[in-house]
């Protein structure tokens, strides 16, 4: 369901850009590409750490699984901090959803994704807590896999969002 909504969002963004190419190209240059790139690296790394958590629980290494989940959570936290800095910069410059069409899409798309990162982190934290309580093992790790899949979906969406909004012109 989330993928469907993001997919529609991306396509509508691309269509609206065709109708406002100069405006989109101009305001795209005001975005912080460095923060966007670092955030992409953080999410990709975080996804990899969560993959390692799944491998660890398959090998019945519960402690290792918890540590990899915490590493994944740290990547997500880093993403949220950098994104908050980016928003703070934009809001302090007086930019809002109503500034123009480009910023309307930039803010709504990235904030919608931001909320999914928070939800993904809540899920990963809950999985880590359950693992700590000994409720996952090599025989029972569906919860870890499900939480990991959601986190990879959040990463997948950002992998399209970053070049689409920050780079392609």
């Amino acid at each position: 369901m989330e993928l469907l909504v993001f997919g529609i969002f991306f396509i509508v963004y691309a269509v609206m850009r065709v109708q406002n190419i100069e405006m989109f190209n101009h305001y795209q240059l005001t975005l912080n590409k460095e923060l966007g790139a670092v955030n992409t690296l953080l999410l990709i790394s975080s996804s990899y750490f969560v993959v390692r958590a799944v491998h660890a629980i398959r090998d019945n290494k519960v402690e290792s699984c918890i540590h990899w989940l915490y590493a994944g959570l740290a990547g997500g936290a880093g993403f949220l901090i950098l994104k908050a800095l980016e928003y703070s910069d934009k809001f302090s410059a007086g930019i809002s959803l109503s500034t123009n069409t480009f910023y309307m899409f930039y803010l709504s798309l990235t904030m919608f994704h931001f909320l999914h990162v928070i939800l993904g982190m809540v899920i990963l934290f809950a999985v880590a807590l359950k693992a700590k309580q000994g409720r996952y093992s090599a025989e029972n790790y569906t919860g870890v896999e499900t939480g990991a899949s959601y986190w990879h979906m959040v990463d997948l969406v950002w992998i399209i969002l970053f070049p689409l909004v920050y780079i392609i012109r």
Binding site: K33, A37, I44, P163, I167
Partner: peptide, 20 residues
């Protein structure tokens, strides 16, 4: 999977370079 992770990091840096 570690190789894939590093490959994706490199691809991200190439994307950033294009934008930069």
């Amino acid at each position: 999977e570690m190789f894939i992770w590093l490959l994706m990091m490199l691809l991200t840096l190439s994307t950033y370079a294009m934008g930069k």
